[in-house]
Amino acid sequence: MEKSNQPNIPELLENSRLRVTDVCDMPPEILYVGDSVIGTLGNFSASTGKAKSKKTFNITAIVAAAMIGGTVLRYRANLPTDKSRILYVDTEQSPYHCIKVIQRILRLAALPLDFQPTSLEFLALRKHTPQTRIAIIEQAIYGTEHLGLVIIDGIRDLAYDINSPSESTNLITKLMQWTDERQIHIHTVLHQNKSDDNSRGHIGTELNNKAETILQIAKDSINKDMSIVSAVHIRAMEFEKFAFRINDDALPELAEDYVPDGEVAPKGFDYQELTSEQHRQALTETFRKKESLGYGELIEALKEGYGSIGYKYGRNKITTLKVFLSNKLMIVQEGKAYRFNHNFYY
């Protein structure tokens, strides 16, 4: 007689029963923003955001922190020794762009680019069907020893129809099964609707209902080069939102000058503090070596330029000055670079 594939319901019932006298260990905490826990083993979380909000850049910082057991941007990671391996799954990008992601992770972690770390496994699944992608991921999750953290960049691509209730429920059930049985943490990425801040489709609804933490990555309404990270949903203590920008090395960089909503912003640069000619002298020195500067280069060059005329400003004052100069069109932005507008009107 063939063995039945039907589940043993009485056995499952007994294994599912909890008693007040049972002792359950607290799940190990592995991912933080500051002192706030955003990820534990046995659970899953997600990052959401609109297109081009730098979600993947944000994820690389989380992975880099996990690889070094330290802090990158505001993310702090602490994977147990027996859960130190990381699986990164990309469902959207070509192998060429996936290699760029790996390189970005290693650069953030200050690791060499000519050697693949044994702690990082990377899968590029763009060419496969959703069903095949799920099968490959499951094989990797159950076949990778010492696995602690799994990134699924593009969970939408694990479903044929993101608005199908049954397909979405089955997929979220898979996440809960994988995290529980393997005692790992899974962090997924999902786009938001164009018209609002809700995660896309029925999958988004299920994620919001079941995830331990939902992070939102959004472009700043004023400075489009700035991405803001906040918690839409978090079971633990909420963290203060923070911001990052992409620096001249194409890496996410913490924006120390970002001021969260509700706090008092630094006072704007005083129009009467310097004359038009003093600004012109300082800006001429700022752009003396290069006609076009990236954001990081600009901040440092402004320090030197205004220092050369006797005004040695700190970083906070310089960032306030930069906003003033941009608003007055004394410097203009072209793409991700800035240049001196010699014909400015003060």
Rank of each mutant, 00 (worst) to 15 (best):
Y311K: 13
N341G: 07
A301I: 05
N343A: 11
Y345M: 15
E300I: 15
Y338Q: 02
L302G: 02
K336R: 13
G314C: 04
G305S: 05
Q333P: 08
N327S: 10
T319Y: 01
G305F: 03
Y306L: 07
L298C: 04
L325P: 09
H342G: 12
L321M: 09
A337C: 14
T319F: 03
V332Q: 09
A301Q: 05
G335R: 07
L321C: 06
K328M: 11
G335H: 03
Y313T: 02
Y306Q: 06
E304V: 15
A301G: 02
I331H: 00
G310H: 08
N343E: 06
L325C: 09
S308V: 11
I299T: 08
G335Y: 04
N341V: 04
V323T: 07
L298P: 02
E300M: 13
N343I: 10
L302A: 02
G335L: 08
H342N: 13
G335M: 05
K322V: 11
L329R: 14
G310K: 10
S308Q: 08
F340K: 00
N341C: 04
G310S: 08
K303F: 13
F324Y: 08
K317E: 05
K303M: 14
V323R: 06
Y313C: 09
E304W: 06
L325T: 05
K303R: 14
M330T: 04
H342D: 10
Y306I: 11
V332E: 09
L298A: 01
E304Y: 10
A337P: 15
G305L: 00
A337S: 15
A301E: 04
G314L: 08
N343D: 14
N316R: 08
S326Y: 03
N316A: 12
L302D: 00
T320D: 03
A337W: 13
V323E: 04
K328R: 13
N343T: 09
Y338D: 01
K328Y: 01
M330N: 08
L329I: 13
F324M: 01
I299C: 06
R315Q: 11
R339T: 14
M330A: 05
Y306S: 07
N343F: 12
T320L: 03
R339G: 12
N341D: 05
K312E: 14
A301R: 05
I331S: 02
L325K: 00
G307I: 04
Y306M: 07
N341P: 14
I309F: 06
G305Y: 03
Y311Q: 10
I309R: 03
T320K: 02
F344Q: 01
Y338P: 09
E304S: 15
L325N: 02
F324S: 02
